[in-house]
């Protein structure tokens, strides 16, 4: 395969990405390339810069380095925090903010197509249902890239797997590229193709199955030394 052909497979190229906020380095020279139609799991402790990486990809924070989308991207974003407890807004009202798409056709792919769902208030939904509504919201724009921040925040364990299975189904149907932030090694292994272990800098970037490799685990969970971190090669 020629270099040009290989380049075409990538949808995202990140090179030397650094973010400083209020004089603190949040991300330090992060580099990775992502192939089209794959799922990248981003793993790291709290404060590792995972959400900031998403914000940089969405152009919401100033950064240095290079973020290159190799084609025109429509990014769907499911944020970590949403405030719905105090806002009396129904599922139908929320999803109808997206013009031109019927609420039923948005809820069916995320397996929430029961009759009562559109009239339910967002604040009374379970964590799993709310995440599915947010996925439906993100998919309304027919994105070719989905950023999914802390996918299972506020979700009970029995609801976690169905969310990832739904994501996997949607990915197969729409050939979407997914970047998801998670703390769960099982999710990394089962539902992602590539892993970026982040702790301010990129500790590891490679195939997700390598997370079971003791050497890789030592890199991910060992002491963070950003200055000496190797440039990811994939």
């Amino acid at each position: 395969m020629s270099a040009a052909q290989s380049d075409e497979e990538y949808i995202l190229k990140v090179s030397g990405l650094s973010v400083k906020l209020q004089n603190q380095t949040i991300l330090d020279r992060v580099s990775f390339n992502l192939r089209k139609g794959t799922t990248l799991a981003i793993l790291g402790p709290n404060g590792a810069g995972k959400t900031t990486l998403f914000k940089a990809l969405l152009n919401l924070v100033p950064y240095t380095g290079k973020i290159e989308w190799t084609e025109k991207v429509r990014v769907g974003y499911v944020p970590q925090n949403i405030e719905v407890d105090d806002i009396p807004i129904s599922v139908k009202e929320f999803l109808s903010f997206k013009n031109g798409t019927s609420v039923g056709s948005l809820l069916a792919p995320v397996r929430l197509d029961n009759q009562n769902m559109p009239s339910k208030t967002l604040g009374v939904l379970s964590g799993g249902e709310l995440r599915r509504v947010l996925i439906a919201w993100a998919f309304a724009d027919r994105p070719n890239v989905l950023l999914f921040d802390e996918a299972t925040t506020g979700v009970d364990m029995s609801s976690e797997e169905p969310i990832y299975r739904t994501l996997n189904d949607l990915k197969k149907k729409s050939k979407i590229t997914i970047l998801l932030i998670t703390h769960d090694v099982h999710i990394v292994r089962e539902y992602s193709d590539y892993l970026l272990a982040l702790n301010r800098c990129a500790m590891f970037f490679g195939e997700s199955k390598e997370i079971m490799n003791p050497t890789v685990q030592k890199i991910i969970y060992g002491e963070t030394v950003c200055a000496g971190a190797p440039e990811p090669t994939r």
Binding site: K55, L58, P79, I89, L122
Partner: peptide, 16 residues
């Protein structure tokens, strides 16, 4: 209206 409600639900979502 829509922009206001969306910013109440999530500023990140609105800004994105």
């Amino acid at each position: 209206y829509r922009k206001l409600v969306l910013s109440m639900i999530s500023e990140d979502l609105a800004v994105s």
